[in-house]
Design a protein around this nucleic acid. Structure first.
Lengths: 152, 152
DNA sequence: TATATACTTGACTAATTTAGTCAGGTATGT
DNA sequence: ACATACCTGACTAAATTAGTCAAGTATATA
């Protein structure tokens, strides 16, 4: 008899969806002229399934990162300057939240530090801060102007 | 007809196995007296399945992070001083390598930067460095001496 | 106004991974 | 001798990922 999964997974996702979102927006930023860019173009250039792109852009639009123009010769354009679009915004939009789970069952037992259970509590907090700092720091402009390394 | 999964997942794992390994070793470091600590004790204190702990400690032992003492009153002890055991070592031992995949099919097509495909290439590299730096910096001693925040 | 083009929505699913369990061992101290 | 501890590997339910598929709706241009 197998137990059900405990709620133990670490919520630190960075999967294809997030990476594709960043890739696609970087592509969009590069071709961000007066004309809107159709998803089909991005799909071909980046090798990402059109259907998957549509899912992703639907979320990006809801978060006001891009706006869409319908009809023939329509497509997507950035809703802000590349420098204003942080990677944190992008990943957040597609549900790739970087968030570490501290305790095994924090909602049930709380994190009572009288046992040694939560010795790693601070650690995961710090890690979360550390990673989020990276994504807060970077924006789309950083990506397209390929200034390689920079401030750290 | 569904296509097979592309090799697209990001290899940035930090799951229960890694977290448990860190928790267990932090526990071990705290109770690291002359006597070896049996896994059963850690299991009870940290609420981790004994069977799962055995899997984890088997790997930790192979990587010389702990050593085992068999027989009655046996158990595990750290093989080095806590300050010498970096979190990077621990996570590496249990196969939780922090490593981001740069390109979709780097082995097949290579990363030819004439297209805009690899615009995010550097990004994931930098992220990998950024995260690994965190784990290289932290050691077990940092965890048990609860000096909260510190150098960043 | 017809129609092609483009976006929109949501249900669906194979492949993969995670988080363990289970079973049967082997070694060692008292 | 035997209890206690470690050791090994096969196994699997649940969850997630990475999309596919289908059926739309909106809009620009001819």
């Amino acid at each position: 008899m197998y137990k059900k999964f405990q709620q133990t997974r670490v919520n630190m996702k960075l999967t294809s969806k997030g990476r594709y979102a960043v890739m696609a927006l970087a592509d969009l930023a590069q071709f961000n002229s007066v004309n809107p860019v159709p998803l089909r173009d991005i799909s071909l250039r980046q090798g990402i399934s059109l259907d998957f792109l549509e899912q992703i852009f639907s979320k990006l639009k809801k978060h006001n990162i891009v706006k869409s123009i319908r009809g023939t010769n329509g497509g997507y354009i950035l809703n802000k300057e590349p420098v204003e679009i942080k990677l944190a915004n992008i990943l957040n939009a597609v549900d790739e939240k970087v968030k570490t789970v501290q305790c095994k069952k924090e909602s049930k037992k709380g994190c009572n530090s009288k046992t040694s259970k939560c010795i790693t509590h601070n650690l995961w907090d710090e890690l979360e801060v550390h990673i989020n700092y990276f994504f807060e720091k970077k924006n789309l402009e950083d990506l397209i102007s390929n200034t390689s390394e920079s401030r750290n």
